[in-house]
């Protein structure tokens, strides 16, 4: 192996390791993402080699036979047609055909699907019974679990799924176009107002998978994150059963005062806590806000500091977001309000 080849070979693992960051397409943890990553690596390797060959040919062509501006070759000089026939037509035709059909194969195995096309067998199965409905909002995700009657839960931003089995997701939008994308599991699908789309995802092992909105949707498009938590089926069922319960009633004086502050304040206009009078639908459901790892569409850790900051001045954390500045609480009220929210496990 030549020195250059060794150098390239030593770079490759480094390069791949560098790419396997949390939101990377090569950090595949599901059958769809895995197959796509494999096809895309094959494409990348083939094309990197092609590029190197082409650059080398250009460099050699330029070096090998210099001329001068004083003279030119006769205008009826021929030759070179074979280059066009072989390099320009035959080879690319073969290579492109192979990749095209490999692509078609994947397309039918892991379809995404909408109402725009009826002739779609694989997707028809996905469409038959969605497990989860996700509704995109500026700039957060509303998540409905569509299981048995006692398990119909509405939550937000943190999406739990059972691992090791396919999960059918129905996608809609409440305002503008968004796009649902968790690179570790599958490609992206748009959420389009007035339309319904479907995607089937599967996590091959439990874990936290991150993603984000992939269609430009306004000021806070950049911070419309997704946290997808895949759990062992038993743990998932437990989580779902807990989410189906109404919000935890406060038990100590501080959290009781916090609940009062919550119900008396402007919060209830936009937010719901099941089991209380708060039934606003404009913002995320807060019934189990305390159980979530992050706030602000998975942009900040869910702790006292960020919750206080979010309540009093969300505009400084996510400029342009729909959560207004709330200035009516004094320090004590604010602390108790946060304590109340955090015990909504």
């Amino acid at each position: 192996m030549g020195r250059a080849a060794k150098f390239v070979a030593s770079l490759l693992p480094l390069f791949l390791a560098g790419c396997a960051t949390v939101q990377s397409t090569s950090n595949a943890h599901g059958p769809a993402a895995h197959s796509i990553a494999r096809l895309s690596s094959a494409l990348t390797i083939t094309f990197v080699i092609t590029i190197l060959i082409m650059w080398a040919l250009l460099a050699i062509a330029l070096k090998k036979n210099r001329g001068s501006l004083k003279e030119h070759m006769p205008i009826d000089v021929g030759g070179g047609q074979a280059w066009v026939a072989i390099g320009g037509i035959a080879i690319p035709f073969l290579v492109l055909s192979v990749f095209f059909f490999l692509g078609l194969d994947l397309l039918t195995t892991f379809p995404i699907h909408g109402d725009h096309g009826a002739m779609n067998m694989g997707a028809a199965a996905a469409k038959s019974k969605p497990d989860i409905l996700i509704i995109g909002h500026q700039w957060w995700w509303e998540v409905h679990y569509l299981g048995a009657a006692n398990q119909q839960v509405i939550t937000a931003n943190e999406i739990h799924i059972p691992a090791h089995r396919p999960v059918n997701i129905e996608l809609r939008s409440a305002d503008v176009i968004h796009s649902f994308w968790v690179p570790s599991l599958h490609g992206k699908v748009d959420l389009i107002p007035g339309d319904v789309n479907f995607i089937r995802i599967e996590a091959s092992q439990p874990g936290d998978y991150v993603g984000q909105c992939a269609e430009y949707c306004g000021s806070q498009h950049a911070n419309m994150h997704i946290l997808l938590v895949a759990q062992e089926p038993a743990a998932f069922n437990q989580w779902l059963a807990n989410q189906a319960r109404p919000g935890v009633e406060p038990t100590n004086p501080e959290t009781m005062q916090g609940q009062q502050a919550f119900l008396d304040g402007p919060c209830t206009k936009c937010h719901t806590v099941r089991g209380t009078a708060a039934a606003g639908r404009f913002g995320p459901d807060l019934t189990h806000i305390g159980s979530r790892k992050e706030i602000g569409a998975d942009s900040f850790p869910n702790n006292d500091g960020y919750l206080e900051g979010w309540i009093t001045n969300a505009q400084s954390l996510k400029p342009g977001c729909k959560m207004p500045k709330i200035t009516q609480y004094n320090g004590t009220q604010l602390r108790s309000l946060v304590a109340y929210l955090r015990q909504l496990q």
Partner: peptide, 28 residues
């Protein structure tokens, strides 16, 4: 998708015509 593949063939034809021109020519 097939259309997109096909159109890239026209570009490869052009690119190889350029490459062959330099290869068979006396570049300055």
């Amino acid at each position: 998708s097939a259309g997109s593949m096909m159109i890239s063939l026209f570009t490869t034809i052009t690119i190889f015509a350029w490459l062959a021109t330099v290869w068979k020519g006396r570049p300055v």
